[in-house]
Computed example of a mutant assay.
Amino acid sequence: MFLTLVLCATVPVLPSGTRFTCTPTRVWDGDGPVWCAEGPRLRIAGVAAREHDGSCRSNQPCPSATAEASRDALVRFVGQPIGQSPDGHVLVAGAAMSCVSNGPAGGHRTGAWCSTAAGVDLSCALVASGTVLRWDRYWRGHVCRSRR
């Protein structure tokens, strides 16, 4: 337990507006956290997915897609699955993403809008996949743009 507390205490939560790079290494569920090799743990901004156990919290949108479907969609967008950790994270190998923090997201997580190396807006792609729902409370006027 002490080791877990120390590890969580060292995870940086980046202030709103901070631009940063995230090279994904682990994914928990369809809206995060995504663990970054650079340190932060991301909560994908503006979206809601089922929890890892398949439930939905009463104060957020509840998509019809399963927790596994949303998690697997996120994994596909950020990289390739390369295994599973003993605690259930999907281990991934992916290219660095460009992210902008929208501040603390609870649980030592940074809420962030991210674009993949190919220029895909992660939040928009997840909503378009049908595996997560747009969470208007946190979407805050975000505009989905495709990169050509």
Score class of each variant (00 low, 15 high):
residue 119 G to D: 06
residue 19 R to I: 05
residue 120 V to L: 13
residue 62 C to R: 15
residue 86 P to T: 02
residue 74 L to M: 11
residue 97 M to P: 10
residue 133 L to E: 09
residue 142 H to E: 12
residue 29 D to C: 00
residue 50 R to M: 10
residue 31 D to K: 09
residue 131 T to K: 08
residue 109 R to Q: 08
residue 32 G to T: 07
residue 99 C to R: 03
residue 123 S to G: 15
residue 22 C to A: 00
residue 140 R to T: 02
residue 14 L to K: 06
residue 146 S to A: 13
residue 46 G to V: 07
residue 1 M to S: 09
residue 77 F to R: 11
residue 17 G to Y: 07
residue 39 G to E: 07
residue 73 A to W: 09
residue 90 V to I: 15
residue 39 G to H: 08
residue 134 R to G: 00
residue 52 H to K: 08
residue 81 P to G: 06
residue 92 V to R: 06
residue 51 E to K: 00
residue 64 S to A: 14
residue 6 V to Q: 13
residue 123 S to I: 08
residue 70 S to R: 06
residue 81 P to S: 11
residue 57 R to H: 07
residue 33 P to H: 04
residue 98 S to W: 04
residue 3 L to V: 14
residue 6 V to S: 10
residue 13 V to S: 10
residue 55 S to P: 02
residue 115 S to L: 09
residue 86 P to M: 04
residue 113 W to N: 09
residue 49 A to M: 04
residue 69 A to Q: 13
residue 146 S to H: 12
residue 33 P to S: 06
residue 84 Q to W: 05
residue 109 R to P: 02
residue 22 C to V: 09
residue 35 W to A: 14
residue 14 L to E: 05
residue 18 T to V: 10
residue 122 L to A: 10
residue 92 V to L: 08
residue 14 L to H: 09
residue 71 R to H: 07
residue 97 M to K: 12
residue 96 A to S: 13
residue 78 V to W: 13
residue 53 D to Y: 07
residue 144 C to R: 12
residue 5 L to A: 14
residue 94 G to R: 07
residue 104 P to H: 05
residue 136 D to S: 14
residue 107 G to W: 14
residue 125 A to V: 09
residue 98 S to T: 15
residue 96 A to Q: 10
residue 9 A to L: 06
residue 126 L to A: 03
residue 6 V to F: 14
residue 69 A to D: 01
residue 113 W to G: 06
residue 126 L to E: 02
residue 41 R to A: 12
residue 45 A to K: 08
residue 123 S to P: 04
residue 123 S to N: 14
residue 80 Q to E: 13
residue 113 W to H: 10
residue 64 S to F: 06
residue 9 A to W: 05
residue 38 E to I: 07
residue 66 T to G: 15
residue 134 R to S: 01
residue 50 R to Y: 08
residue 25 T to N: 03
residue 130 G to T: 00
residue 110 T to H: 01
residue 87 D to M: 04
residue 4 T to I: 09
residue 97 M to R: 11
residue 54 G to I: 01
residue 14 L to F: 07
residue 53 D to R: 00
residue 12 P to V: 10
residue 134 R to P: 00
residue 28 W to Q: 05
residue 20 F to I: 11
residue 140 R to Q: 08
residue 83 G to L: 08
residue 143 V to D: 07
residue 132 V to A: 03
residue 36 C to R: 03
residue 146 S to D: 12
residue 94 G to F: 06
residue 8 C to W: 13
residue 42 L to M: 01
residue 56 C to I: 03
residue 98 S to Q: 14
residue 103 G to A: 08
residue 80 Q to I: 09
residue 31 D to R: 08
residue 17 G to V: 01
residue 41 R to V: 02
residue 90 V to T: 15
residue 68 E to N: 11
residue 138 Y to C: 04
residue 11 V to A: 01
residue 40 P to F: 09
residue 16 S to L: 04
residue 88 G to D: 08
residue 101 S to K: 03
residue 74 L to P: 06
residue 112 A to S: 12
residue 55 S to T: 14
residue 7 L to E: 05
residue 110 T to E: 10
residue 15 P to R: 15
residue 28 W to F: 11
residue 44 I to V: 15
residue 20 F to C: 04
residue 120 V to K: 00
residue 3 L to D: 10
residue 37 A to V: 02
residue 113 W to L: 11
residue 62 C to N: 12
residue 33 P to G: 05
residue 66 T to C: 05
residue 142 H to G: 05
residue 135 W to R: 09
residue 102 N to A: 10
residue 87 D to H: 00
residue 137 R to F: 12
residue 74 L to Y: 12
residue 130 G to K: 01
residue 37 A to P: 01
